[in-house]
């Protein structure tokens, strides 16, 4: 067997969706890949000096600049005449992508760098202890959007990152999920078959932050897709070209596995609000299988 590109033995939690996704991403990208990582759980659990889990060249600089550092890596490879032989991945969590790193990411897209950006969306700042981010879902309980007598949790729905990416007129935008790993790897390969900037957002359940059992990571990931709350979609050059069809399940099946939504469970009105988000997605992307 060839040398692993992402070694086991790192310090991720049991059931970590992000570590699984990151391994599958780099395995799909292959050994001729340079990885640039934002600060976050992934970088912390995979590069704890003097150990590293990475079998490919890897650089971590700061929380918000992976897209810019990757732009520099790509520019250097272009200068050296090596760009065609080497893939460049920039990656980070939802906070490093949709919040503090959005400016650098927008710049990278706008400039047209031949870089794939992968966002591991575990829907909060997990590395610092489950604070809300721009990708935290509506009414989710986090440490900075806590449920209280005056609060049902996070105030707003997820920032529409895939649409923001599409608006940059880049070659490829997709969502993926730890619940559908072959689909994830196909999308990584698809991305690298196209030139220019690409964006893939991977839904990555976090047992600690979402408060579900570590063994439920895949199941929770699948349910997010199957309820319509996390649609799996693909855009090529701005056109919607792929949608994973579902037989929609009620959102409650997804919510009830997770402590972060527990406060909604005996509240039909609150569940209805979440169901509306799913129904909107189902309508908008035509997710429902027509029998």
């Amino acid at each position: 067997m060839s040398k692993p590109l992402f070694f086991p033995g790192h310090t991720a939690c049991a059931g970590c969706g992000q570590s699984l996704a990151a391994r599958l991403v780099i395995e799909a990208a292959g050994p001729n890949t340079i990885v640039v990582n934002n600060t976050g759980c992934l970088e912390v659990f995979s590069t704890y000096y003097p150990l590293t889990a990475w079998g490919v060249p890897f650089v971590h600089s700061l929380f918000e600049n992976a897209a810019a550092v990757a732009s520099g890596v790509e520019a250097a490879l272009t200068y050296l005449g090596k760009k065609d032989k080497v893939n460049v991945i920039a990656q980070g969590g939802d906070g490093g992508t949709a919040d503090i790193g959005l400016q650098a990411l927008s710049g990278m897209w706008e400039r047209g760098h031949d870089v794939l950006y992968v966002c591991y969306d575990n829907e909060a700042y997990m590395n610092t202890g489950v604070q809300r981010s721009g990708l935290t879902p509506f009414n989710s309980d986090t440490t900075t959007s806590p449920v209280g007598t005056q609060s049902m949790g996070n105030l707003r729905p997820k920032k529409p990152m895939p649409e923001i990416a599409v608006a940059h007129a880049i070659s490829y935008v997709a969502t993926a999920s730890v619940g559908f790993l072959q689909d994830l790897q196909r999308k990584i390969k698809k991305a690298f078959s196209l030139k220019g900037p690409k964006y893939i957002q991977v839904h990555a359940p976090c047992p600690l932050g979402w408060r579900h059992e570590p063994r439920q990571t895949i199941e929770v990931g699948r349910l997010a897709v199957e309820t319509g709350l996390y649609p799996l979609i693909e855009y090529e050059f701005g056109k919607l070209t792929g949608v994973r069809k579902i037989q929609p399940k009620p959102v409650e099946e997804y919510l009830r596995l997770q402590g972060r939504f527990r406060h909604l469970l005996n509240n039909p009105q609150a569940i209805k609000q979440i169901q509306e988000i799913a129904d909107n997605n189902i309508d908008r992307y035509g997710l429902k299988i027509q029998l």
């Binding site: 810019a68 550092v69 990757a70 520099g72 890596v73 520019a75 250097a76 400016q103 650098a104 400039r111």
Partner: peptide, 24 residues
């Protein structure tokens, strides 16, 4: 040279970081 027009100084110097890390 590759002349990279960025959206901020934070990114300008980060681009340079990436380039030097790649050996240029």
């Amino acid at each position: 040279a590759q002349f990279i027009n960025v959206e901020s100084e934070h990114s300008a110097v980060s681009v340079c970081l990436g380039a030097v890390a790649t050996g240029v």
